[in-house]
Design a protein around this nucleic acid. Structure first.
Lengths: 213, 213
DNA sequence: TATTGTGAAGCCTTTCACAGCA
DNA sequence: TGCTGTGAAAGGCTTCACAATA
């Protein structure tokens, strides 16, 4: 851990975008990409791209560009996603059940190995009708036990906002190391449990700001 | 438009977080909040909060804090979300149908007034079973016509990645002013159509980076 | 007294220009 | 020749300390 020198937060944020572009390039059988091409695809500029990559080594080829496959591997390594991460989803409403079958997670080594709800009987129906039963929905009472048994490290919260903090506390108590909160309520975690809030309306708010101003 | 002086991008990003906190405070009947309280709820620090608010006026009360309701109104105004925004969702799979009934959109004046798919007959079934029929699912051939008729300004893309750019081009041609892309493929728009990509896996990538490092 | 609003300092990030290399 | 890697400069953002004031 802490294998690389201090990398700017902004760079870390861009790395997963670069990764998306590289996956796209790979799917189009492109072997090599210049910083200018990547910059164009990711809506940044070329020196930025080069500087970002330079933080974790020199592996471009002067006069040519970057090897797509190799670069992809490097980025995955630096982000720490070059291995499987086991995830639990809590709150199996519309959003939660959509995540349970979200294909992009699987592609990227994110594996949902547990799902919880406060009324599991209620939700099993509509999920199995639509998408089969990707993972059994369990009562939230079993959260701690199952999270330990299945080596879950990340919890995703997709409950209504009122329940978000309660669920976060359950996840923290069950020793997850990170929480991704999709519910539109801010949640608090202690320092040793990393947190990311993903508010859909924030993305819209941001879009609207730049549409208006 | 451009009513306020240049506001840092980072500040704009934080504004919708502050808004979420204020909504939360309001629901707990808090009338006044200090910068320290807001900072704590939003995981930033107090001078940051004050500076952010100071960009668009002076409306704190020294010795007291900020009036929650008034502050909320101000932030909504600056973000441009003090009016209804009409949205179309394209691609009614699991994620798309979850968005169609996403309650937080409604609460915040975001109104989904159109939904499109390439096989509308196929998806109507599973949606109506689960959540009623919030809005009729139409064939994507009617996108341009319906978007104009219903005054849609924002398009949300929830198709598989392979279709994302094609759909973006349709939306651009139909004269939307902004696009929110949920599909895990980068999309390009001309300068006059604002774009925001919302990659779920990026949030996880980011979380994992800070869990690992 | 408590808390805001803010200039100035410090820090971090981006951009630039070009040396270095395939 | 073309594109990377990078030091230095510029720019932007955050933090700090404190004056202002309800």
């Amino acid at each position: 851990m802490a294998k690389y020198a201090k990398i700017p937060e902004a760079t870390v944020r861009r790395l997963s975008n670069y990764l998306k572009c590289l996956i796209d390039l790979e799917s189009r059988s492109e072997k090599v990409a210049s910083s200018a091409l990547i910059a164009n695809l990711c809506n940044v500029n070329a020196p930025q791209v080069r500087k970002d990559f330079a933080y974790f080594g020199e592996f471009g080829i002067r006069g040519m560009g970057y090897n797509v496959k190799e670069l992809k591997r490097h980025i995955k390594e630096i982000l720490g996603i070059n291995r499987e991460w086991r995830i639990a989803v809590v709150g199996i409403g519309n959003m939660g059940s959509a995540l349970l079958v979200y294909k992009d997670f699987l592609k990227q080594n994110y594996k949902i190995v547990a799902a919880f709800d406060i009324v599991p009987e209620k939700v099993i129906g509509h999920i199995s009708e639509r998408v089969g039963k990707p993972v059994e929905i369990l009562h939230i009472d079993r959260l701690k036990e199952v999270i330990k048994a299945r080596n879950v490290e990340i919890g995703i919260i997709t409950t209504p906002p009122g329940a978000a903090q309660t669920v976060a506390d359950l996840l923290i108590d069950a020793n997850v190391k990170g929480i991704l909160n999709f519910s539109p309520a801010p949640v608090k975690t202690p320092d040793h449990v990393k947190l990311r809030n993903l508010f859909f309306t924030s993305a819209l708010d941001n879009l609207v700001y730049y549409m208006t101003n």
